Amino acid sequence: MILLNFEKFDGISLDDIYKSVYEIDWSEWIKEEQSFAIRPLRVGKHNFTSVDVGKVAGQAVIDAYKNAKNIGLKVNLDNPDVIIRVDVILNELIIGIDTTGDEGLHKRGYRAYNHPAHLNASIASALVKLSNWKDDGILLDPMCGSGTILIEGAMIKRNIPPGKFRDDFAFIKLFGRDILEGIKSQIVENEKILKLYGIEKFKKHIEGAVKNAENVGVADTINFIEGDATELEKIGLKEVDVVITNPPYGIRIGGKRMVRNLYNNFLNSLKKIAYNQSRIVIITAEDKILRNAAINNNYKIKEEFKVMYGGLDTIVFVLENE
């Protein structure tokens, strides 16, 4: 986002929002023939709603543009040329131009198959970086679903831009397509062969993961295997360097008892193939169950991070064998 204004108030009002938005020279950012929309956000206690913020800010943009150029701007809430973000966070007001668009950066554009509980691609990428996985190390996702973690890992190591497969960024309408093509032309990808393994219990998810990997061009470096995360000793891997996974949280597999059994059996099975120094990164909303399973199976909890994911409070655990 291009930040246009940031202010703090003792007690922010709708008048403050109108004045702050009105003072910006919108003719620098919106062409006469273009449409715009306000995307408001309000966090905290106020005597107005986010809808009120959107209405007041939108009117301020229209009035300011009319005053500057004597032209009435078009509003298009569904498919605007320019998206303006107006965020009221407690007593702070943040006004900016959205350069991404309504589809967040986690929307990569490569999915041919959607797992019913696939991991947010941005979070998957962050987990890979958190794991400190090296190019020559073996990375295992024992509950890989549609392959998001493995695909993001391959993209990182092969220097494939996460936005390569999208063509709908808002900044294209702002600055033109040439800037995007210019950036793409400067990126040098590679064809490293990596040691990536994904285990998945259901054949249809494996087939979907392969399609996703093929879309990205990394299917040649990911080994997808139909198997059980609680019987990892049967997959043929004798050792791994890094484990990253997003296990089921219980919503679709039958409740907490099944989650408890899965987590305990998985961590027990992992000990049969993992190096003593293997780094294990797990994201789950069932943090108490995971924590108990780690203790029961003699894993050391090195770090914990809180992550809000899809409306759920999740925890990212970094474990090591004791």
Score class of each variant (00 low, 15 high):
Arg85His: 15
Arg85Ile: 08
Val88Thr: 08
Val61Met: 09
Asp102Val: 09
Ile84Leu: 14
Asp78Arg: 09
Thr99Pro: 01
Asn76Ser: 13
Glu92Ser: 12
Lys66Cys: 11
Val75Cys: 07
Leu77Pro: 07
Gly101Ala: 02
Asp63His: 11
Tyr65Arg: 00
Ile94Cys: 08
Gly101Cys: 02
Val61Cys: 03
Leu90Val: 13
Ile71Leu: 12
Leu77Lys: 14
Ile83Ala: 04
Tyr65Gln: 02
Asp98Gln: 08
Lys66Leu: 15
Thr99His: 04
Arg85Trp: 07
Glu92Tyr: 11
Pro80Trp: 04
Lys66Met: 15
Leu73Arg: 00
Ile62Phe: 01
Gly101Asp: 05
Arg85Met: 13
Pro80Gln: 05
Ile83Thr: 03
Ile95Ser: 02
Ile89Asp: 11
Ile97Gln: 02
Gly96Gln: 03
Leu77Met: 13
Asp78Val: 08
Lys74Tyr: 09
Gly96Asp: 05
Val61Asp: 04
Asp87Thr: 06
Asp81Lys: 04
Arg85Pro: 06
Asn76Thr: 12
Thr99Arg: 02
Thr100Met: 12
Ile95Phe: 02
Arg85Asp: 15
Ile89Pro: 00
Ile89His: 07
Tyr65Gly: 01
Ile84Ala: 08
Asn79Arg: 09
Val86Pro: 00
Asp63Phe: 06
Gly101His: 04
Gly101Met: 01
Asp87Glu: 14
Ile71Gly: 07
Glu92Cys: 08
Val88Ala: 03
Asn76Lys: 10
Leu90Glu: 14
Ile84Gly: 04
Ile62Gly: 02
Lys69His: 07
Lys74Asp: 15
Asp98Val: 01
Ile83Met: 05
Lys69Met: 06
Asn70Leu: 07
Asn70Ala: 11
Asp87Gly: 04
Ile89Tyr: 13
Leu73Lys: 01
Val88Pro: 00
Ile62Thr: 03
Pro80Asp: 12
Asp81Val: 02
Asn70Gly: 08
Thr99Asp: 10
Ala68Tyr: 12
Leu93Gly: 02
Asp98His: 03
Asn70Glu: 15
Asp78Gln: 11
Thr99Ile: 05
Leu77Ala: 14
Val61Gln: 02
Ile89Leu: 12
Gly72Ile: 14
Ile71Tyr: 11
Leu90Trp: 13
Leu93Ser: 02
Val75Thr: 11
Asp78His: 09
Lys69Asp: 11
Val88Cys: 04
Ala64Arg: 00
Asn91Met: 04
Pro80Ala: 06
Gly72Lys: 13
Ile84Met: 10
Asp87Gln: 06
Thr100Ala: 12
Asn79Tyr: 08
Val88Ser: 08
Asp102Met: 10
Asn70Ser: 12
Val61Lys: 02
Val61Asn: 03
Asn67Ala: 14
Asp102Arg: 09
Asp98Tyr: 03
Asp87Trp: 00
Glu92Gln: 11
Lys69Phe: 05
Leu93Ile: 08
Asn79Gly: 07
Ala68Val: 11
Asn76Arg: 11
Leu77Val: 13
Asn67Trp: 15
Leu73Thr: 01
